[in-house]
Design a binder for these strands. Structure first.
Lengths: 340, 340
DNA sequence: GGCGCAATGCTCAATTTGAGCATAAGTGAG
DNA sequence: CTCACTTATGCTCAAATTGAGCATTGCGCC
């Protein structure tokens, strides 16, 4: 059946990706959304409450079934989220389609289940419509990713456990392999930290057994533990969140997507704070503004901020024209060096 | 039903993306693969023959149903392709999940159908296993994308039609919008060509009615037409191919994926030819080698080429270590300027 | 009026690009 | 055997981009 070939019957429509053959294996498909906002210089994701394994409830990402009435996946998602959260989705991008990793239930029944994950950026942080939904700082779930105030404490606690994980194998070749991966993802053993490898880090932690979801011990961790290995999420939603963050961190470097998160006018410093929030790194202020200026990403308004300490800042707005002009505008992140 | 919320029933498993709710709307899911090789400095994709609308047959990408026995989407794809083509897949990456755009058939039946597309890179060009399958230069389907020998002729023929398409709307605002898009994607009206916008170009051509698949007139175009708007493909496989090319063109700039297409040892010029084949642009030779050398992407072997015209070249091999060292190694493409 | 605090301007050296020129080392023709 | 031609490889140089830091400007507030 799994034939790499011609479809057995000629298709009865002009378009479509040619899956008519697949009807014999229907699958359950769901949509998951990582809806991101950034206010007060903090990166946030919209979360909902999901019944957990233990009696309590757990954080999760908004998700729902794919219903047939929607013409397109993306438009389905848009309609669904906008209806439920009264949240205008500006930028929407497909993230990844997750298969059923480590799942047993449905497989036995001969059913696949997929979920198509989307990343959405919203400009304003509405009060989260539903009572069950709330905006949460995304570093709550992945605390080791926030380097804005220097090396995160979470990482300090994780590191010895990771080294132990690498050390626990006898085979020197395999151990070497694990150490390499630690260097690559976490910057240990002489490697460098790369802020885009969010998913790889999450998956490594998962593999090393440091992620509670891995053992179905969702209720176990105390608060102290959550500060180290992060707050758990339902299903594999933390993996989805990690995918989203990694993607977004990459994207802001070559596409002006940050502006989807900014209010109509803002100061350069607010913009910087937002970029820093997403990338989890501190940037060099003067160089950041030089970059933005050079790229012509913004235009000045006549207004200045007031009331804040220090000299008032000029308010600027995004120059929509850059979407047409530059082949691939965006930011290159220039990390600020901190002493020690 | 389409609730952005908590699942109604507590899930019976630790992982999975929480789609149990979606069972009520099963969907048909298929896999499509863009399997890429590059030999003799030409970029090729593996194609199969598919029954077309007209009596004849049409090129298409290898595709098949998603069968439940596979543990993971990617592994399912791997197994399936490797079994059928006896082709080792080296690098595999999920591309995109296509919904049923512009489809009517299944929708009425309350069924979605999706296809999950993958990009795979193979090192050697095996003789295409199946009789029905063959390796085709991918510019056969998207001739305007090949700028290696200067501005492609295809583009010259397309351009007036695109301008006409922009001109055909009365509303000046809408016309302006179309012109902007032409500038952005095709570099017309003063814009610059960006080799990564492959999908956007295809979709714009599709919208402008220049793609035969759009009207179900697959059999119509003569050879002359195919040289201009490209050879058609079954279903929306050309869209999938365009997605793959765009993604790959982006990726080679920051990840050393080209080496997945190279034989164990090769010359720097062969490497350059491969990069050029993928990106569709000619590169500056000396600077290319400087870049590769600086990045430490390859190491020299003791062998030289022989038999070719000109001075023998040193054979090099990929330095696997760079996968660990560099945070994000790859190529930055420095286009060669050609007179005129 | 002077202080502290941000915003903004400006400098400067170290790299990194972009573009060529020059030389080396083979093959094939006459 | 030598010349013409071809491709590989080395090297230079100016322009542009980065990375880092110092200096100045305006404001709210003692």
């Amino acid at each position: 059946m799994s034939s790499l070939t011609t479809a057995k019957d000629p298709p009865d429509h002009a378009l479509g990706t040619g899956t008519s053959d697949a009807l014999s294996h229907p699958s359950a498909v769901g949509l998951v959304a990582v809806i991101v906002a950034a206010t007060d210089g903090e990166p946030r994701a919209l979360t909902v409450q999901v019944p957990g394994q233990a009696p309590g409830r757990q954080d999760g990402l908004p998700f729902g079934p794919l219903v047939p009435e929607h013409p397109t996946l993306e438009r389905g998602l848009r309609a669904w989220v906008e209806r439920q959260t009264h949240q205008r989705l500006g930028y929407v991008e497909q993230l990844y389609t997750f298969g059923d990793r480590d799942r047993q239930g449905d497989e036995a029944a001969g059913l696949h289940s997929l979920s198509v994950a989307y990343l959405a950026l919203v400009r304003e942080m509405r009060p989260a419509g539903l009572a069950e939904a709330s905006w949460r700082n995304w570093y709550r779930y992945l605390p080791w990713e926030d380097w804005r105030a220097g090396r995160p404490e979470s990482l300090g606690a994780i590191e010895p456990r990771l080294m132990a994980w690498a050390g626990e194998v006898a085979d020197p070749k395999l151990r070497r392999r694990r150490e390499d991966r630690l260097g690559l993802t976490f910057g240990l053993c002489g490697g460098a930290w790369n802020e885009e490898r969010v998913l790889e880090r999450y998956e490594l932690l998962f593999e090393a057994g440091l992620i509670p979801e891995a053992q179905g011990q969702a209720g176990k961790g105390a608060c102290a533990e959550a500060a180290v290995t992060g707050h758990p999420m339902a299903f594999d939603h933390r993996r989805v969140l990690a995918t989203a963050i990694g993607r977004l961190r990459g994207k802001i470097k070559y596409r002006p997507v940050v502006f989807e998160l900014m209010p109509p006018t803002f100061t350069l410093f607010q913009l910087q704070r937002t970029v820093e929030a997403l990338s989890g790194a501190e940037l060099h202020k003067q160089n950041f503004r030089r970059l933005v200026a050079q790229q012509g990403l913004v235009e000045e308004t006549d207004d200045l901020t007031s009331g804040t300490a220090g000299r008032p800042a000029r308010l600027v707005r995004f120059r929509r024209e850059v979407l047409l002009e530059r082949p691939a505008p965006g930011f290159r992140l220039t990390p600020a060096r901190r002493p020690g």
